[in-house]
């Protein structure tokens, strides 16, 4: 019995390898075909732009978590960091602050919380998921406390235009995402920080022995993640024209993590690119969007994305073992 199973496995090795190494591309292709077949009205310019627009904020957060994933860690605090940044900025605008002030607040709040995560993980040696989960809960607590669960409207026209307006038919958010993807890619590929980051993720011992300040690299990765969560809040609050604590619900984590793993960012550290992560974001947004158009319930998307995470992490770990 055993022998038969064995033979079957060894025969299909090539096919398996092919499948594993190109999983994201294959997934994208399958999803595209499926969507084209089952969703009428999917391939309209309007819908495609809509998908891009929807993926912009998520894309920012995924670029953020990519750095953390590359170090081999995880950041579960992104949703509440994002919500808190947005709420504080919105509150500032309510009290008459201008757009510059609001942007500054969003970014600094994100950066600050990211630094707390990074300090606890890099220097205090705490477990990443524990630290970031705590920050998520604490952040949510602050959000709920500040807003009393009431959403804060944003009426600053300049702000709304700056982050959710359009240039021609292209939403500015898409342009921002494209630009930040470019920046992140250049930093990852060309800068010394990128080298440090990947080296730390691949083998932190080798990196430390080679004189790389690995603790600071960890600090930086989480700060980066927080910074991008702060920037994402700009896109989200301007699209909603309000800020509320519900922006930071845990479902957001599902989207972030599933985007990253689909985009080929390894949960075990060392591998993955911002480009891949954004590609993963598009796939996940496509899935949500098309399920939405087919009037499949939101709950079903939870199930699908949960399965997607497990499948892709499994593929990734098989790839690593090979």
């Amino acid at each position: 019995m055993d022998r038969i199973v064995f033979r079957r496995v060894s025969k299909s090795v090539n096919w398996k390898k092919l499948l594993i190494t190109n999983s994201s591309v294959i997934a994208l292709a399958i999803i595209f075909c499926w969507i084209a077949l089952v969703t009428p009205g999917f391939f309209t310019t309007r819908n495609i732009i809509n998908v891009l627009n929807q993926s912009a904020a998520l894309g920012f957060m995924v670029i953020g978590i990519t750095a953390v994933f590359i170090t081999g860690g995880i950041d579960l605090s992104i949703p509440s960091v994002m919500a808190l940044s947005g709420i504080l900025a919105a509150m500032a605008m309510q009290n008459g602050a201008g757009i510059m002030m609001a942007v500054l607040i969003s970014i600094l709040v994100g950066l600050f919380l990211g630094l707390i995560n990074g300090y606890a993980i890099g220097f205090l040696r705490m477990i990443p998921f524990v630290v970031t989960l705590s920050i998520q809960i604490i952040g949510m607590g602050i959000c709920v406390w500040l807003t009393s669960k009431v959403s804060i409207p944003i009426s600053n026209g300049t702000y709304l235009n700056a982050f959710s307006g359009k240039i021609g038919i292209i939403p500015v958010s898409v342009i921002y995402l494209a630009f930040m993807t470019f920046v992140a890619t250049v930093l990852a590929k060309k800068s010394i920080w990128g080298r440090w980051l990947y080296a730390t993720g691949i083998n932190i011992n080798t990196a430390t022995v080679s004189g790389i300040p690995t603790r600071k690299v960890l600090l930086g990765a989480y700060a980066w993640s927080g910074l991008f969560a702060g920037m994402a809040s700009l896109l989200i609050t301007s699209r909603l024209a309000s800020a509320s604590s519900t922006m930071g619900q845990e479902g957001v984590v599902l989207n972030i993590v599933s985007s990253a793993v689909v985009g080929g960012v390894s949960f075990q550290g060392g591998f993955g690119t911002p480009m891949g992560a954004v590609l993963g974001t598009l796939i996940i947004t496509l899935i949500s969007n098309s399920m939405n158009m087919m009037q499949i319930s939101y709950y079903m998307t939870l199930i699908v994305k949960g399965i997607v995470i497990i499948t892709f992490v499994c593929l990734d770990s098989i790839r690593h073992r090979n």
Partner: peptide
């Protein structure tokens, strides 16, 4: 990550 996946699946 496994239990995070099942967390969402079960809730869904």
């Amino acid at each position: 990550i496994a239990s995070m996946g099942t967390m969402f699946i079960y809730r869904g």
